[in-house]
Design a protein around this nucleic acid. Structure first.
Lengths: 340, 340
DNA sequence: TCAATCGATGTTAGCGCTTACATTATAATC
DNA sequence: GATTATAATGTAAGCGCTAACATCGATTGA
């Protein structure tokens, strides 16, 4: 009953048939007589035999495995995307390997190499805007990768990236957030964003400006800050803003790039004695698992990350070359309140 | 400059050498003349050639890829273990695939199958105690898996699991936590634990009882509850405890199985108007990224999960059949305070 | 009764590499 | 200059499968 690392030849000779017949029952072909099938299955069980997907892949040109590249798994946002993608892949009979972005990004190791050498059937890449330099470099890597295998993108993908993608319309989303805060009576609304860039019309920054315009609210430079998207960065960003402004100019609401940043903002506000949500409303984005447990429980945007991951896998496998936008949902909790 | 899916034969004929020579430069062998090496490298660059790890693996019997099986990535605890393991594997020249536990656990799919068919060079399994039934089933699966490839375990591994492992001595850890709380003056200390079980002497429950005994504190059944280890479960567990006890019997400190449970406990306490840490101290375990941003910032135990993952990879690759225990560190924040 | 048909099984040539071994070119030894 | 050691390169046999094709009875129809 234990494994002896049998090959298809061992099974064939043990069952008294040819390897082709063993291969047939392995792949579930129907043109094998019941009695032969039984003999083969018994031999397989006796040897605890498992066909090698390596040998299989060599011949069939398909590994039935996909890859997903993402910045870092420690950010639950990406863990959710991965989980959605993984489950979907599994349902479709594919396995899925994970490649943290850092490893694709180091120049010491050509980006495509690890993916290509493993002959994956396709790859999903979660893109993240870091800097203009970096952007061009990433785009070039992606183009190259596309020569080898189908690629589907996830995230805030600029329109000029010519790839199938599952994206968020971040601009529209933040625009809606501004409208929501305005409806609560806020007029001094700050925005703690990500890396500064000017090209992509879907980015969150754009939505912030549009939202203010919609509400005929002035744009105030000191209410807008760029950052790295981490909790530490959020804490520093809002802290600096508050410290540099007289209290009467303090914003009454802040829109955080994501929940991590929002967490940092809560810490900064608390450290300065602001009571929340009374004196300061904060809204995050991504609706991480910890959002309901923060204090005050964080109002956030659920961006359906698992569905996003799953849909990307579907596009990858079906080969549809299209770009889809996923819906989002405002999840109201206690961190945003009416002014006065 | 673009990929044409070249094989080693294409490179060989393009460079005017034999495939053996190409293979030699590919693998960095030294006994190739400089001029030949150059010719081959040029041909490789011209075709954008990447050797197939599939074909390579078939011959060399090693895929240079490892697997890691864990319950769920959405829990940042496991994301950290994965990250540590992944980075270490990469350093050692291995790739690493992730297998969420659920997929190895379903009977529809034989646990070993996916790992074995892919001919991984080894696998790390994060074990989690779920129930006596489940425990036996898991152990059986692991034994079987061990016939096919080296296995290293991570987590709270009972001593009778005969596997190399990187473990926490949870009993000692919780014992220290109790001592810490006692040193702050606490006498009514609750414990929101995981699934009930009796066999493993390293489990956290044991440490709780030992800690109380060390401090000559009585053991009170109503202060101890079992649960699922999620935030929701934690909220319900502490909520029920508080609701069923007269306020004068309320614990002044609670030890949560992990930070998720601790988050839930904070919510339950807050909902009942307890001020923290004044009226209730809470200590978690795992020191998740959000611990500093909870309110009050959560005192927790850093269990060095990344180091754990990395060490497991080292054991796996070196083949050392030993069991190691990792150190932990108490990270004091504001959620635990002196009584009075 | 014989050819045509068909279901069940076997034979064999790869898939793209690695590696043991054979071969040749070059240098070193007497 | 013949012999031998040494470095550089080539040849060919697999690794464990898949799949196209071949084979071989057993039916079937005329």
């Amino acid at each position: 009953m234990r494994s002896d690392n049998a090959t298809i030849y061992d099974i064939a000779s043990d069952a008294g048939v040819s390897i082709a017949t063993v291969s047939r029952v392995l792949r579930g072909e129907t043109n094998v007589s019941a009695v032969t099938r039984k003999k083969v299955q018994d031999a397989i069980a006796r040897h605890n035999y498992r066909p090698s997907s390596i040998a299989r892949g060599l011949m069939s040109k398909s590994t039935h495995s996909l890859g997903i590249v993402l910045p870092k798994l420690l950010n639950p946002h990406y863990a959710m995307i991965f989980t959605g993608a993984y489950e979907e892949a599994r349902k479709m009979g594919y396995s899925m390997s994970l490649f943290p972005w850092s490893s694709i990004d180091t120049r010491a190791y050509d980006p495509a190499t690890m993916l290509v050498e493993r002959r994956l059937d396709g790859v999903i890449v979660c893109v993240e805007y870091l800097s203009p330099d970096h952007d061009e470099q990433v785009l070039a890597s992606l183009q190259e990768l596309k020569h080898f295998m189908p690629v589907v993108l996830i995230g805030c993908v600029p329109p000029w990236y010519d790839f199938p993608a599952v994206t968020n319309n971040n601009a529209a989303m933040v625009r809606e957030i501004v409208a929501y805060l305005v409806s609560l009576g806020h007029e001094k609304i700050a925005f703690i964003g990500g890396v500064q860039e000017d090209k992509d019309p879907l980015r969150r920054d754009v939505g912030y400006e549009e939202g203010l315009r919609d509400a005929r609210l002035p744009y105030t430079a000191s209410y807008r800050v760029y950052g790295k998207g981490t909790a530490e960065a959020g804490e520093k960003a809002l802290g600096d803003m508050l410290d540099s402004l007289k209290p009467e100019y303090w914003p009454t609401a802040v829109i955080a790039l994501n929940d991590l940043v929002a967490m940092g903002c809560q810490a900064a506000a608390r450290k300065r004695g602001l009571s929340m949500p009374k004196q300061l409303s904060i809204i995050g984005c991504d609706d991480l698992f910890c959002a309901p447990y923060l204090y005050p429980p964080l109002t956030s945007i659920n961006t359906r990350q698992q569905a996003t991951g799953a849909r990307a896998v579907q596009l990858l496998i079906s080969g549809e070359d299209k770009r889809e936008t996923v819906e989002w949902e405002l999840v109201e909790r206690a961190s945003c309140a009416k002014t006065k």
